[in-house]
Structures are given as C-alpha cells and as structure tokens.
Lab assay of single mutants.
Amino acid sequence: MATGGRRGAAAAPLLVAVAALLLGAAGHLYPGEVCPGMDIRNNLTRLHELENCSVIEGHLQILLMFKTRPEDFRDLSFPKLIMITDYLLLFRVYGLESLKDLFPNLTVIRGSRLFFNYALVIFEMVHLKELGLYNLMNITRGSVRIEKNNELCYLATIDWSRILDSVEDNYIVLNKDDNEECGDICPGTAKGKTNCPATVINGQFVERCWTHSHCQKVCPTICKSHGCTAEGLCCHSECLGNCSQPDDPTKCVACRNFYLDGRCVETCPPPYYHFQDWRCVNFSFCQDLHHKCKNSRRQGCHQYVIHNNKCIPECPSGYTMNSSNLLCTPCLGPCPKVCHLLEGEKTIDSVTSAQELRGCTVINGSLIINIRGGNNLAAELEANLGLIEEISGYLKIRRSYALVSLSFFRKLRLIRGETLEIGNYSFYALDNQNLRQLWDWSKHNLTITQGKLFFHYNPKLCLSEIHKMEEVSGTKGRQERNDIALKTNGDQASCENELLKFSYIRTSFDKI
C-alpha cells in the first residue's frame, strides 16, 4: 500500500482533458527560462521544448504516446526543470519506465491550478516501474492521483506527508504495488545497510526511497516546507523545498512566496507586481503582455491589467481597466465587458449561442446573426445582446428569417469595421425574408467608422429604411451602385405612401 494514499474509496472516473512563447529569463536562482504550460502528445517531438525550461508557468501534460519505446527515452533528460506552477499529468506514455532521468531536479509542483483537485496525476502508464522524482520536495496545493499503472512499484516507500501538507485526498490505487509483488529495495538494503531515512506512518517504520538508488530526502521537522541542505541544516524561511546553503534567500532552489532578481522575498516591493503567484514583474512586463494579447485571437491570451499590486489576466467583477495605466478602477454604474472572439468572429444561430455573449459591452471581433427560429426570440436576444455598444469588426445579418427588427441591439452605437466582410463591408444584410426595420432612427444613433453597407434580398425592408441608415451611420456616399439592390429590397412591402385627393359631386333626387 502506498504510504499516505487512500484505498478502496469510491472515486469519480478520471477524465483526461485534452506555445513556446518565453516569458522571460528567471535569473540567477533558476538555471534556465520560464516556459508556458505545455500539452505534449502523440510523439516526442515537442518534448524537446523543455530543454531550457527551469519553470513551467502553467501545467505540463505528457500523454497518448503509443509508439514510443524505452530506448526512445534513454537520452532524454531535462535537468534544468525545477518547478511547475500548476500540475504534472502523465497518461498512456508507452515505453517510459521512470522519471528519474527525465526530470531529475523537479523540486516543486505548486498546484496553482489543479487537474480535478490533483497536482500530480500518473494514470495508465503501462510501462512505468517507478516514479523516480527523487528531488520532489513540495506539492504546495492539491493532491496526488496514481492509478492503474500495472508495473509501478516504489510507492509504499514514499512518505507523501513530507511532500504535501495533507495526504487525506491522495488516491493511489490499482498499481502493481497493490499486489505486494514489488519487493522494493532501498539503497544499501541488499548489503544489509540502512542508507535512507525511515519514518513512521500508520504504525509502520519504513525506509523512504524513490528507487533502488535514490533515497527520499527527509528534512528535520523544524525546517517545515522550506527544505534543508545535504547536511540537514534548514533553508531560509522564504525558500521552498530545498537550498544549497542554509538561511540564505539567494540560495533557495525555489521560493515559498515570490522570486525577485535572484532572491526569494515575502512580497513584491514597489515598483514590482505579483505575477502568477510566484514571481515579481515590473510595469513594462505587464504592459507588454497586455499589448501582445490586445489584437491576438490565441486562446488563453489575456490583456493583463494591474489590481491590488498584482498583474492579473482581467479586472475583477465591479472594476474596469483604465487604459492609460492598466489599473483596475471601480465602475460607475454597470461595468464594461470586452469579449474577445477566439477566431475573430462568432455566429449567433440560437439563443444558446447568444447567451455566451451575455453582459458583453464591447465585441472584439465580428458578429454573424443567422437565426431561423426560436421561442420568445426578441426578448431572449435583447437579454443577451442588448448591452453590446461596440463591435470592432463587422455585423452580418444573414438568412435570419425569424427577425423582424434589429432593435434587440438596443445599445449598439459603434461598428468600427477594423475587419470587413469580403474585404469591403462593415454591415452586411443578406436574404432576411421578414426583416422590416433596422432601428427606430428617431431614437437610435449608430456610427460606422469604416467599410460599406450591403443589402440584398431583404424583400420587406424598404429602401427608405436603408437610406436612413446611410445618413445616420455616416456611410452615405461610400456605397457603390450594386451594394444596395434596388429590386430585391422592399419588393414585397408597401414602401411608397402617396396622399390621394378626392373630389365629389353631391346629387339628390331633384338636383344634379
């Protein structure tokens, strides 16, 4: 039985969820670079991206490699990797027998973001014989899940209580170790020597080791999670996991709180800001991140802002960003909400898709409305799209047979046209069989910064309504002859009103 693990408890099935942008060198404390989270699957090609990484700022997932063999891993080693800020997950990587050479110096898994409450997941690794993470000293947050690894031993010899604050939620089941077939031998045991430290858990006094050649490092209890030197002297209180010299914040392997210019500090002093819960960055760093993602459509890219001495992905609820200094300031009234469309555009074809934009005031991208039916549609669209004030790209209304009016965009005031449909149009209306009105132009103002209007096959939309939009939106004169079809717009509506004058002759039985 794995020490510190839980057996036999019912657990939810383990679901495996399925960018080499360097964020800056980590400095003297770390020998390499800070790398983003990685999802490495199918083959070993991307694994080489770990070569210079000291910190993975995010998670590391290595999974679904069915053609790899043990010899493929023999020359692979990433000794610079010290810390993973989120979680480490391995799933069905064939041929991998140990992690001792792959990650010989991995010391800390912070667990800032977890995989279903777990910071370390080893699942269905069919050839893994031992973990071998002999320098792993601290899992700051989260638990361990090690399950269905039929060859995995050296679990009962690990004292997880020396690595985690609590072992109650560890789930370590259905491994070879369960069948008591392992016969784990710690260093020196074969020669009758006791080389590794022994600890007591559940009444068992057991030597602690990761492999037959690597003991588990056990520091004096007084050192807590700070770690200790090879001689057993406690590291500085700002260290986490390990250090090369005692009581020196510049000799830590990793930091308990924050890293700044080669030393570990309790908090980031001005003019620095907390970033990702582990390091200090200056304003320029946060500003660069903001600008890199301002026009990016890459998933996970955030326009970072500053709030409460932190550089964070977005302002919290009730705050909006001051564009001059990136500071989050309290909103006066309802907060603006910028919604970034991942692929640059979004099609609204149902109430469900409209709900995804609920509360958005600025759309960074283009909207395509293609709704053919739905219950209580006008009210639903207004509830979900009615706060949109600005669209950076274009607005396209296409084959939306259920629409009679666009009044559900009740606050839309600006279409920038930074991206144009077919390279020309910022407003595009095609084949809307029941569209009769755009907006009530006596109450609604709309500016279209650039781009043209396109109207074709809107049989109940009168040309007068379209011409009014040209005047109000500032697009009059931009359109070419064929942009607004004269014969297919309003051709099934009563669009022309003329005053009919009647004269009559009164007659009676005795007068003409």
Rank of each mutant, 00 (worst) to 15 (best):
P220S: 09
D248S: 12
I139N: 00
K292P: 08
G262P: 05
G132S: 05
Q245W: 02
Q204N: 13
H226N: 10
L89H: 02
I62W: 06
E238K: 12
L60V: 11
F91E: 00
W160Y: 07
Q287W: 10
E49H: 05
N242E: 13
H226E: 06
C268T: 00
Q216P: 01
H127A: 12
N309A: 10
R113W: 12
Q299Y: 04
F66K: 02
P36T: 13
C255P: 00
N257Q: 12
C301R: 05
P79R: 08
V200C: 06
L128T: 03
L131K: 00
S143G: 12
L44D: 14
C228W: 00
S237E: 05
K294Y: 11
S323Y: 07
L332Q: 14
R41M: 14
K100L: 12
C215N: 01
R110E: 10
E266V: 08
E266S: 13
G227E: 01
E130M: 14
N322Y: 12
S225L: 08
I312F: 09
I40R: 00
T68R: 08
I306S: 06
W278I: 01
C209Q: 01
P70S: 06
N295A: 11
H291M: 08
G241L: 01
V173L: 07
R263N: 15
T229M: 14
E147T: 06
L164C: 15
G333L: 02
P31A: 06
Q216I: 01
E168D: 03
P220R: 04
P316T: 03
D165K: 06
V253H: 14
I139W: 00
D261P: 10
T250N: 07
E57V: 07
S237G: 09
N242C: 13
D248G: 07
H290V: 12
T140K: 08
N295E: 07
S296E: 10
T85A: 12
G227T: 03
Q287E: 03
Y94G: 02
F205K: 10
Y134P: 06
Y154T: 02
I84C: 01
V305P: 04
G32H: 13
G188V: 05
L102C: 02
V173Y: 11
E168R: 06
R297I: 11
C311Y: 02
S98Q: 04
Y171F: 05
H28L: 13
V218S: 04
H290W: 14
E231S: 11
H48C: 12
M137D: 04
L155G: 02
T250K: 09
N135W: 03
P336N: 15
Q216C: 00
E97T: 07
D159S: 03
R113V: 13
R92Q: 03
E168T: 12
G227I: 02
T250G: 12
S77F: 15
L155H: 01
C243V: 00
F116R: 01
Q299F: 05
P270C: 09
N42W: 10
T194S: 09
S166M: 09
S237C: 15
G37R: 06
M83F: 12
N308H: 15
I62Y: 00
C311L: 10
Y171C: 02
F283D: 05
M321Y: 04
L60Y: 00
G132T: 01
D247W: 12
S161F: 12
P187N: 05
S54E: 06
K176V: 02
W210G: 01
G58M: 00
D165L: 09
N295L: 09
L96K: 00
E49Q: 13
H214T: 09
Y319Q: 14
L332I: 09
T68W: 03
H236E: 11
F285M: 07
W210N: 01
S112W: 12
N309Y: 05
M125Q: 10
N309F: 14
S317F: 14
T320V: 07
S77R: 11
T199Y: 07
M65I: 06
S225H: 09
S284A: 03
Q204G: 04
T68I: 04
P269G: 07
D247H: 03
P197S: 09
F115K: 04
C301Y: 15
T267P: 09
N150Y: 05
R46T: 03
V144E: 00
D165N: 04
M65F: 09
N322A: 14
N170M: 06
S77Q: 14
V218P: 02
D165E: 11
R298Q: 03
S166L: 12
P70M: 13
V167H: 11
Y118S: 05
C235M: 00
C239R: 00
F103A: 00
S213H: 12
N242R: 09
L88V: 07
G58A: 00
Y259I: 13
D261V: 06
K80R: 11
G300A: 06
F123L: 01
P36W: 15
D277Q: 12
T194D: 07
L326S: 07
P70H: 15
L120S: 01
E238S: 09
P197N: 00
P270S: 10
C331K: 03
M321R: 09
E124F: 03
E147P: 00
L240D: 03
W278Y: 13
Y87N: 01
P316S: 06
D178T: 07
Y273D: 05
C293K: 04
D247K: 05
C311K: 03
R141Y: 06
Q245L: 07
H59D: 09
N282M: 15
D248T: 03
V305T: 10
V108L: 10
N325A: 15
T329K: 04
C228E: 13
T199V: 11
I158T: 05
L50R: 04
R41T: 08
A254D: 03
C186A: 01
R92S: 06
K294M: 04
Y319F: 08
D101N: 12
W278Q: 07
K67V: 11
W160K: 02
L60F: 04
C280S: 00
R208Q: 10
Y30D: 06
K217R: 08
E124W: 02
T107R: 02
T194R: 07
E180P: 08
L164Y: 12
N309D: 14
G241R: 03
C335E: 04
D86W: 03
L90H: 00
D261Y: 15
R298N: 07
A190I: 06
E57P: 00
K67C: 06
S317M: 06
V265P: 01
D248V: 06
I163Y: 01
S225D: 07
K176R: 09
P330T: 03
F258D: 04
N295K: 14
C311R: 01
K193G: 07
Q303A: 03
G188F: 04
N43G: 07
A190N: 09
H236S: 11
Y118I: 00
C186E: 01
T211Y: 01
V218A: 09
R263K: 09
S317E: 04
C264H: 00
C243W: 01
Y272K: 05
N138G: 08
C153A: 01
G111E: 00
H28D: 06
Y154R: 04
Y319L: 04
Q61R: 09
G95K: 07
Q303W: 04
P269E: 10
M65T: 07
D169V: 06
S237V: 04
L120G: 00
R41S: 02
F115R: 03
C264R: 00
C186R: 01
S324L: 13
Q303G: 10
H226S: 05
Y94N: 10
W278E: 05
V34N: 04
P79M: 09
D178H: 07
E124N: 05
C280E: 00
I146F: 09
G37T: 10
R279N: 04
M83E: 10
D177S: 04
G132D: 03
I62D: 01
T107I: 15
S284V: 05
Q276H: 14
M137E: 05
T107H: 12
T85C: 11
V126I: 08
C209M: 01
A156W: 12
